[in-house]
């Protein structure tokens, strides 16, 4: 951890949140988002990655009235205001689903599985949802 920085007396660590589940069918996507928002108060170096069905969390035009659950998808657009700006989506996951970044509701960086693996290896903490 040679690249740790000191910030107002605290150590800044690299946190990665790995999102792998489609939204609404299970609670994982919402739980992850809530943890990210709470942890944002601690000013850490946060990356959010979306792989496998996790890419569906970022789909535009989600309308949940018909299944009577909260539509939390607009909250991804608030992440920037919480200084969470590193959002990564895996290319292989998009391709397998016939999706492109045009389908997504926030700007993201697309990376290959190999690049994502490297990014994962650089983290201090990886939280999987």
């Amino acid at each position: 951890m040679s690249d740790e920085m000191m910030d107002e007396g605290g150590v800044v660590k690299k946190f990665m949140y790995v999102n792998r589940k489609a939204p609404h069918g299970t609670i994982y996507a919402l739980e992850s988002l809530e943890v990210v928002l709470i942890a944002a108060a601690f000013d850490q170096d946060v990356s959010l990655v979306f792989v496998d069905d996790g890419v569906y969390q970022l789909m535009k035009e989600q309308k949940t009235d018909g299944i009577e659950v909260k539509n939390f998808s607009p909250t991804y657009r608030a992440l920037e205001m919480y200084d969470i700006e590193k959002l990564y989506v895996e290319k292989e996951s998009l391709d397998a689903r016939g999706l492109t970044t045009d389908d997504l509701l926030v700007p993201v960086e697309v990376m290959s599985a190999a690049e994502m693996a490297d990014l994962m290896a650089q983290q201090d903490v990886v939280l999987s949802f």
């Binding site: 609404h24 789909m59 949940t64 018909g66």
Partner: peptide, 13 residues
């Protein structure tokens, strides 16, 4: 089930 497609933003797909 249409409401489940709509919830996930994938109706058009």
């Amino acid at each position: 089930l249409a409401p489940d497609l709509e919830a996930r933003g994938v109706s058009s797909k």
